[in-house]
Design a protein around this nucleic acid. Structure first.
Lengths: 110, 110
DNA sequence: TCACTCCCTTACTTTTAAGTATGTACCGTA
DNA sequence: TACGGTACATACTTAAAAGTAAGGGAGTGA
């Protein structure tokens, strides 16, 4: 499992590339969110996938998980210092993606 | 199937996100390549996946396929004009990915 | 006539990702 | 005693991506 990823692009795709990860990050880039908030903001995600993707992102170091030992429990997720380095990357991706979507709309048949 | 992709980041991941697509594009960013060249440059890819990914990339408009009706046939793949707009995107991704890989090497246990 | 090269195609199997459904710990309140 | 709210975990199922193996057409050289 400790395999050096060949191409750094694949690394990024691995970090961002779950079905819901871009959307999770998108919301966390705006502000810290609780687990419940994310569930509401991303209505179609299942609890399993939300938790799993949050764990993945935490493990990659891009988000932080803070537990408040209250009752009922409160868990906050936020972009880490390091995770903020993703913001300019996300902007570049967004720009290209938006442009690409427009392009595809214009010429559905090539 | 004509569903507006919600997040433009997902669009990019869709375009770049096959197992071999980043490597294919990497090689085509350097220069035009024949099918055979790509097979040799990417030893572990199967013919099926290579063909399929080339078709995908062609359909997205980022690469061009040129057939020379010679015998034996000759097929060249190259980055399209539009595909070249991916180069700066790839550079940003590479930079972040490389940094991330280094980071992971330094602190395998967090 | 047979083999060879190039660029695939197709059918089938395996692996990986995602979805669904249910259960749990905590404690305070009714 | 049962119930509610938060943030999960676990087992099982389905769907999507990738891998494997075999074949094919078209012309050329032996």
């Amino acid at each position: 499992m400790i395999h050096q990823r060949e191409c750094p692009i694949e690394t990024v795709i691995h970090v961002l590339g779950g079905k819901w990860k871009p959307m999770i990050l998108w919301h966390l880039m705006e502000s810290t969110k609780r687990y419940n908030d994310l569930e509401k903001l991303i209505p179609d995600v299942s609890q399993k996938m939300l938790t799993q993707h949050l764990r993945d992102l935490e493990q990659e170091g891009v988000i932080e998980r803070t537990v408040y030992p209250t009752v009922p429990p409160k868990v906050e997720y936020s972009l880490s210092e390091y995770g903020r380095t993703l913001i300019p990357v996300a902007e570049v991706l967004c720009a290209w993606g938006e442009n690409h979507n427009e392009r595809k709309q214009e010429e559905p048949a090539s």
